[in-house]
Amino acid sequence: MNARKQLMDGLFYQNPVTVQLLGMCSTMAITTTLFNGLGMGVSVLVILTLANIIIAALRKIIPNNIRIACFIVVIAGFVTIVDLMLQAFVPALSASLGLFIPLIVVNCIILGRAESFAYKNGIGASAMDGIFQGLGYTMILVIMCVIREFLGNGTIMGGLLEIGKDGNLVFGLGTAAGIRILPEGIPALGMILPVGGFITLAVLIAAMQYILNKPKKGEKKAEEVAK
């Protein structure tokens, strides 16, 4: 497996969110501040990589008929580990993501990659796949967070940085209010409400389709995965 090709696939051509259309619940639900998006992206990246490695290592032992159940147990185990670690070390993130950390179990990206990649490939390639697909997911989350936070709240870097009383940048994990760009009253609150999530993701996917379909005409788009 070519690592460079895998990287480009993860970030663009086979991006889990905008091309494979997986894992949209969390993509739209938690992308309200950069802090949430980064935290969620990194959590999924870690879980995806570890689950891919274990499933690739066990792929010859897992019987074909009950493979989905086996995948879910492996994934649920790692999700529980990450959930407890976050509660212990980054309680602010755990509080603001809430239900969506345990719900990574049913995030279609992880099950989808286990089924379509890790179950068929070696450990090294699966680990790379986990990292690059996780990066692609994180990238989309960060883009959505920046757009929604800027338009909906008028700030950037919410939860990470803020301007302190003396005018310097202060780092505050989960507590910082963000750097205000637009004055109060101008931002459209709708963008950080559910409506904004749907519309931002729609525009992002449309942009991705536009870019990917431009050079090669007539190429078939990735089919919609109904999961």
């Binding site: 259309l21 709708g190 409400l193 559910p194 409506v195 904004g196 999530g197 749907f198 519309i199 993701l201 729609a202 525009v203 996917i205 449309a206 942009a207 389709q209 536009y210 379909n213 788009k221 919609e224």
Partner: peptide, 23 residues
């Protein structure tokens, strides 16, 4: 609808409007 929006994105837009109504 515009070509880039065909299929999934326009459906997401419609879902956004349903969400707006439910607000």
């Amino acid at each position: 609808c515009p070509k880039a929006f065909e299929g999934f994105p326009i459906a997401l837009m419609a879902a956004g409007l349903v969400a707006l109504a439910f607000m």
